[in-house]
């Protein structure tokens, strides 16, 4: 009998996180996150990216810097193992690469891949819950700190992405981690570190 109760207790404990994972976010939670994030005007952060891809023998690691000014300016800069990056400013953008030594401009709406990238990055950085709710089925994995699971409803993202995990800082003002899980089991984890909120950012960055 004791053995049976122990098994039952273990089953209940293991079921609890699963029940939480299926929880749709309460409007209050998203409102609270949106209110908190509304006070954020700029973000600057280091990031570390790990790519767990079956194409590679080991994890691909890279690091860089991330800058964001509300509503439409963003800089994503890889510093190692190669120096490359891009700046998005409204509808326009420019990218550079140390290998080519060239900087080229582009228009986001005319570059299907950059359009997907820009939509994702801006949606996490702001964060734009209206857009996220339109594009993804959102479930709350943990509430403190908030960890959301986003599953694409359709569109081009659904072609390669299975789901996203977005983790917020303890105070809910910014995103601390993002995981992109692909349909074939590969995933990418990005951790944001040394995040500065509302720090004055040089206009030259964009």
């Amino acid at each position: 009998m004791i053995r049976f109760l122990l098994i039952l207790a273990l089953l209940c404990c293991s079921a609890m996180p699963a029940a939480a994972a299926d929880t749709a976010p309460s409007p209050a939670l998203l409102d609270s996150l949106a209110r908190t994030a509304a006070g954020v005007k700029t973000l600057s952060s280091d990031f570390v990216q790990e790519k767990h891809l079956s194409m590679f023998k080991s994890v691909m690691s890279s690091k860089g810097r991330f800058y964001f000014v509300k509503p439409y300016q963003l800089r994503w800069e890889l510093t190692a193992p190669v120096a490359s990056g891009f700046v998005l400013k409204g509808e326009k953008g420019r990218r550079w690469h140390e290998r080519t030594g060239r900087t080229e401009s582009f228009v986001i709406s005319q570059d299907p891949v950059m359009k997907i990238v820009a939509e994702q990055l801006f949606a996490w950085a702001r964060p734009d819950f209206a857009w996220l709710k339109k594009e993804y089925r959102i479930t709350v994995l943990t509430e403190s700190p908030v960890l959301l699971r986003l599953e694409p409803k359709g569109g081009p993202t659904a072609g390669f992405l299975k789901h996203l995990l977005i983790g917020f800082s303890a105070d809910g003002r910014y995103v601390r981690s993002v995981e992109l899980h692909e349909k074939d089991g590969d995933f990418t984890r990005i951790k944001f570190q040394n995040t500065a909120v509302n720090k004055q950012l040089s206009a030259d960055l964009f």
């Binding site: 790519k51 891809l53 194409m55 691909m60 490359s84 891949v113 990238v117 081009p156």
Partner: peptide, 21 residues
């Protein structure tokens, strides 16, 4: 392969992995 590898490191790599393969 070098260009492909570097592309995979950038966010564009999310959408371009299948094409590289």
């Amino acid at each position: 392969l070098k260009a492909g590898y570097e592309q995979l490191l950038s966010p564009e790599g999310w959408a371009l992995k299948g094409k590289l393969q």
